[in-house]
Computed example of a mutant assay.
Amino acid sequence: MNFVSSRPSRQINWQTIIMFALGFWLSGSLVLDCLIIPGLLSAGMMNEPGFAGASYTIFGSFNHVEALCAALVLTGCLVFRYGDRSTMHINNKSIFLATVLLAIALVYTYNLTPHMSAMGLSLNQFESIGATSGSMTTMHVSYWILEATKLICGATLLRSFYRNSCSLG
């Protein structure tokens, strides 16, 4: 049985997927960092007993979306680097930046967010939540350093793919 499709097969436009994933991811990070976190801090939510669980739900969900976006970006870079694409040349710098982005997303998902949520968890409901500990402050500093690195690497990749898309057309 031979089946012949009358529909022509189209190749996946990885450049569009990469730019969409990076744009979605970076804009989501900026909304989280510039709107949601300051809003929670100014509302005094960090002193509430259920804050650790709620923040784990919010940040854990977003971290899984980040890991998915980072995997898409790295996959697209590898397709351009090692696939038979003659229209665009990807250098090793782009693959390195995409790998750094995936590593940051994995550190957030499996290390930083669970540990920060566990440190903020109140196991005694009658005890008030005290001041931020030194190890929590260290984790916050590492979060912001990783966040700045993520935004710089992501913006660099987005800029290079956007420039390549403009020069191709």
Rank of each mutant, 00 (worst) to 15 (best):
A98S: 10
A98F: 04
T99A: 15
T99Q: 06
T99N: 08
V100F: 05
L101D: 02
L102F: 13
A103T: 07
I104M: 03
V107P: 02
V107K: 07
V107N: 02
Y108F: 15
T109D: 06
Y110C: 01
N111C: 09
N111D: 07
N111H: 09
N111Y: 12
L112M: 09
L112Q: 09
T113R: 12
T113G: 07
T113S: 14
T113K: 03
P114D: 04
P114R: 00
H115K: 12
H115A: 06
M116V: 07
S117W: 07
S117H: 06
S117E: 04
S117L: 11
S117I: 03
S117G: 14
A118F: 04
A118I: 00
A118V: 00
A118Y: 07
A118W: 05
M119D: 07
G120V: 07
G120Q: 08
L121P: 00
L121H: 09
L121W: 06
L121C: 00
S122G: 08
S122L: 09
L123F: 04
L123Q: 11
N124R: 14
Q125D: 07
F126N: 11
F126L: 14
E127Y: 08
E127S: 10
S128V: 05
S128Q: 14
I129V: 13
I129M: 11
I129Q: 13
G130S: 11
G130D: 10
G130E: 10
A131P: 15
A131M: 15
A131F: 15
A131T: 15
T132F: 08
T132M: 14
T132W: 09
T132L: 14
T132E: 13
S133E: 05
G134I: 05
G134N: 10
G134T: 09
S135P: 00
S135V: 00
S135Y: 06
M136A: 05
M136N: 02
T137D: 08
T137M: 11
T137G: 00
T138W: 13
T138V: 11
T138Q: 15
T138R: 15
T138E: 13
M139H: 14
M139A: 14
M139G: 12
M139Y: 13
H140M: 06
H140N: 12
H140F: 04
V141C: 10
V141I: 15
V141T: 15
Y143H: 05
W144C: 02
W144G: 04
I145P: 02
I145W: 00
L146S: 03
L146C: 08
E147K: 07
A148R: 05
A148Q: 08
A148N: 01
T149C: 08
T149Y: 03
K150R: 15
L151R: 02
I152G: 06
I152A: 01
I152L: 06
C153K: 07
C153M: 08
C153A: 13
G154F: 03
A155G: 12
A155I: 13
